[in-house]
Design a protein around this nucleic acid. Sequence first.
DNA 1: CGAGGTCAAGGATATA
DNA 2: TATATCCTTGACCTCG
Lengths: 586, 586
Amino acid sequence: MFPECLLAQLAEPPHRETQSLIYAEDEEKMCTDLSAQLLRPEPLKPSAFRVFCPRPVYVSAPLDYRTPPLTPFYSTPSATPFRSTPSSPFAPVNKTDSNHLSSFTEFLTRIALNSAQRKCSDASSLFSMSSSPVVVKLEVDDEEISADNAERYAWIAHYKHRTAYTTTAHPPEKDACAICEDRASGLHYGITTCEGCKGFFKRTVQNKRIYSCAQADSGHCSIRRERRNRCQYCRFCRCLSEGMVLEAVREDRTPGGRNGAAIYNAYHQNRRRKVAAGCVVRSGSSTSPSSSSPPSVVVVVAPCHSSEELPVPDERRHQPLGKSLIEDMIEIDCIDRLINLKGLRVITTKDSDDNGPCHRLSRIGDEIVEQLVEWTKQLPFFTELPIDVHTHLLTQRWAELVLLSACFYALSHTSPHPLPPTSEDAVTTTTDDDEISLVDPTVNLRILQRRLSIVMGKEIPLDHVEREAGSLVDKFTALLYTFSRLNLNIDAYVCLKAITLLNFAPPASGVSLMRDSHIRKVQLIQDQFVKALQIQLIGEKDGGARLSDILTWLPLLHSAASVLLHSKMFYVPFLICKTPQRLPDL
Amino acid sequence: MFPECLLAQLAEPPHRETQSLIYAEDEEKMCTDLSAQLLRPEPLKPSAFRVFCPRPVYVSAPLDYRTPPLTPFYSTPSATPFRSTPSSPFAPVNKTDSNHLSSFTEFLTRIALNSAQRKCSDASSLFSMSSSPVVVKLEVDDEEISADNAERYAWIAHYKHRTAYTTTAHPPEKDACAICEDRASGLHYGITTCEGCKGFFKRTVQNKRIYSCAQADSGHCSIRRERRNRCQYCRFCRCLSEGMVLEAVREDRTPGGRNGAAIYNAYHQNRRRKVAAGCVVRSGSSTSPSSSSPPSVVVVVAPCHSSEELPVPDERRHQPLGKSLIEDMIEIDCIDRLINLKGLRVITTKDSDDNGPCHRLSRIGDEIVEQLVEWTKQLPFFTELPIDVHTHLLTQRWAELVLLSACFYALSHTSPHPLPPTSEDAVTTTTDDDEISLVDPTVNLRILQRRLSIVMGKEIPLDHVEREAGSLVDKFTALLYTFSRLNLNIDAYVCLKAITLLNFAPPASGVSLMRDSHIRKVQLIQDQFVKALQIQLIGEKDGGARLSDILTWLPLLHSAASVLLHSKMFYVPFLICKTPQRLPDL
DNA sequence: CGAGGTCAAGGATATA
DNA sequence: TATATCCTTGACCTCG
Ligand SMILES: [Zn+2]
Ligand SMILES: [Zn+2]
Ligand SMILES: [Zn+2]
Ligand SMILES: [Zn+2]
């Protein structure tokens, strides 16, 4: 009986997936292929950064999963002997000792390059966060941000429902695929899955496929609906860890009928194991490996509409990639880190730091750039562009990013109105002690003077501040007002931030240092964010921002950034936005 | 009977929801439904569809070949959006100004030809994407647009599909690709094709490529296996004429699964159309020059000769917007009338008109506004807004409209390069006698001085001109340069013109004279044009304008308009752009 | 119901 | 860079 099966499989038309497995004898070829794969820069996809995982590379002999497994399969299906080489694609091939570049830019580049190799771990931590036990869910959408960020963005908590579940616990929705959360079509091989995951599991087992994770930090890829095809290895791992039963894939390919008792036994066994695992995770939170779970996580169960189950599949299907992109952008937009710079903290120790304000300001500028570099490295499109392109963009735009972030922070924190003031409503926020004003620069100037005195540890006369920073405060106040008119939510804000960064302007000299392909790539990515922004804006009927308004606001931002750069007082927006922390400097 | 069908289909899930696939057994239902479609004018033969090679410049509109995922009832008629012109497509039918054609650059010639073709194909159905007022390309639900805007914007209802019905004969083979007669690999996008033609069609639609036939005898290249890569244009034409369905190329690039009922409907419809066409061709054999070679046997079938016909209830609410709207905008944009103002003509009669320049200038300002009022009255949305709103908008924006028109006119007429200068290429157009410069204001100043002298009938010293208009010329030159960087075609230009007009800015006083509903209406209409502009820009890979660049250019335009208004020398842009006509004043 | 298969979608990649 | 081959995918289908 076995030979027949084998023959049947061999006799299959070569079109099928069973045809040309690369086995162990091709090991050398595999190595080169794999390394080439790892070294090759990823092509830019117009609609997604990476849709599919690369063509499979078989790193070991085919495995018959259905042989009775005594070892727990759900750990890992196979150990992958290959890891991503430390010589990542971002490694500097030619060390450009650009002496003509400013030390500032060099600093940028150095930071970026040094930490490029750590990028993988950074990304993996991001991934593990997104799949960490605590997940914030937003209404019915798939939008999720980590609870960590939810803390940071406490001000948006009022419009976000939060729920929590563990990786091993069942998702709240009944009709969701346990693997990818797509709409499920029933029970398949033991668990509730969609048609895609069902077919994937079947093909994998039938053809004895062995995958490997392309990520350096193997095995932590997110398997959501939009991304489920990006990593077969992690998808199959998830299939196993969720309890899909290998033996339920029939050797003889007989359709129909019922499975034997052994299969049903395995179903029950897996279900028990999963429940137990869920208990373990819940009881001993310290065992959770990757998640540095924040201690205070507010768990609010979303209003569950379990009674009506089918109303949303269409929405799901239309859900473009923009959402997850924005999710990632929100996740990495650690605005508080930018606002709460060390250099802006109240001096508690030695105040003999009398190098003058210039030194202090330059330090703050460095801090800003450092934060922005970290942000850049976490951008979803970071790997899509060479380091020097990022450096160029950030050098061009960092002041605008600072101002944009400051504007958003200010409006998010100060205004008690959920909506910024419209024309007549409340143009002036309360002229209280520390309340920033959208219209009156003198209010903000006084705020700046007060806080600057605190930071510097000595009283600074108002007229001095006005003389030095008056025009800057004017400009910033005007910018704040126009920004408030845009009435952006956080989704639009992160999109606009990316658009700002990617707003490549050719050097006035006419000689571009960037290759045309890079420029086009930057433009393509920017276009993606413009589209994502546009999607965000749809549906905001009244008072919502409009794309043309937002984009035509960018020149104002640029103009204000010029003033900021010229003034060299980079701390001014931050100080106006937030009271300096009184924590001691490290 | 019809209402039920209609309701049933409208109730269908919009996307690829395949719960109710219409297969062969649903033939009856399909017949009734299809009959309505068959009665609707069919799209014309694509072989005469003429667009321009992407290599020099994208002057033709970027194409989104796909219709939005709508129900078949209102989405299918535009399966093949291009039409044939039995007469030569090169006939210069440019409505705006044909006598300039000879001296125009290639750039403008192409525009003229393109628009001429559009005029011929009155059917408006240039592109299937325009079957919905809103964007196809935005990965957005079009609920808001289709329902809300269809009511709100009754003015778009006047853009109706009217297409003719042509097709080509085709010798049916079994395993041969219907396009190139290579070995077929199955059904792809509706017909039997090889892998190569499948991929070619997919790439073309996905990347919105626009081809052109290099042969003088356009559209008659043979697409056999060995030669199929010789002419992309003819190959794609053949794909369309053979019935490949544009909409089957998925917008979201989701692999796997099955297509929705709409796609299957289109398959059936195309097959039916081809069969009918084949009969007609065989009966009337006079048109076929060579029986063996299938290429482009054009047969125009009267739309009402199908066997099964039912009276057409022309109740389709969702009319296309984008393309035909732009056509009309182009049609009414009589830029030459604006440029060739009477007041700028050379004085031939009495020159005792010595009221001084002030009076002359005020007359010119009146003339400008007069022309713009005429333009406004022809706008497609003219009836949608009250007169005072139009007045308000025009009062706000007329100087910007003047500058925008002048910029476009200047770039269309002066530059011999099909491509505007890029960074290094040719920033300076030839500093010839009357050649406008994009970078050197003094060149333009001299032009102005010369022409002003001609118009005024007396020599005007250069320093006087410089003193009076120097800053204005500087500003205008800078504006010209930035505008040239945008590299707009005429479609984008007319969209931008509307966007500019509709760029309502609330008065700084805070008291708006316009009602909120009017403001929202203006914004909504503007959004429509932003979307239409975006459609235009899609597919322009290299050197094409980008939405963010264009919209962020508007503040520059505004700023230059302020300078123009302050100078009160409204004639300056026109004089720089064009030599004053020597025609006698009427 | 849930096993199985189907086959046109799209992606990856070698090739020119 | 475009092409064409090969391969994966998944919504729908049949069968027991
Ligand atoms: Zn799934
Ligand atoms: Zn993985
Ligand atoms: Zn072919
Ligand atoms: Zn040709």
